[in-house]
């Protein structure tokens, strides 16, 4: 009885130790590679956000210029008609 208990304990110890031994940790170099990749992703995300902001600002500027251009063309036409009418 005592012998069997002893065997069970030894078996359990073996299983526990072998389970621990199966999982190897990444090396410091690999961890640095992971950190670098994370930093690169974060940097690209920031750059995309900056481009989106720039895009929105450009779209507003274009819309504003377009509105002024349409007004200018309208005024030009009206002035030409006015001059014709005054002649």
């Amino acid at each position: 009885m005592k012998k069997s208990i002893g065997l069970m304990v030894v078996g359990a110890a073996f299983v526990a130790m072998s389970a621990t031994g199966c999982k190897s940790a990444p090396s410091a170099e690999e961890l640095k590679q992971l950190d670098d990749l994370k930093a690169e992703v974060s940097s690209i995300e920031k750059e995309i956000n900056a481009r989106q902001t720039e895009k929105a600002a450009l779209q507003r500027a274009i819309a504003e210029k377009d509105s002024r251009l349409q007004q200018c063309l309208k005024d030009k036409e009206a002035v030409q008609q006015h001059i014709k009418g005054m002649m």
């Binding site: 110890a13 526990a16 130790m17 621990t20 999982k23 190897s24 940790a25 990444p26």
Partner: peptide, 19 residues
């Protein structure tokens, strides 16, 4: 020894493994 081993496994499992 088993107790130490289980505890070590537990601590280790909180860190990253290769997979």
């Amino acid at each position: 020894a088993i107790a130490i081993s289980v505890a070590a496994t537990s601590v280790y499992s909180q860190e990253m493994n290769k997979e």
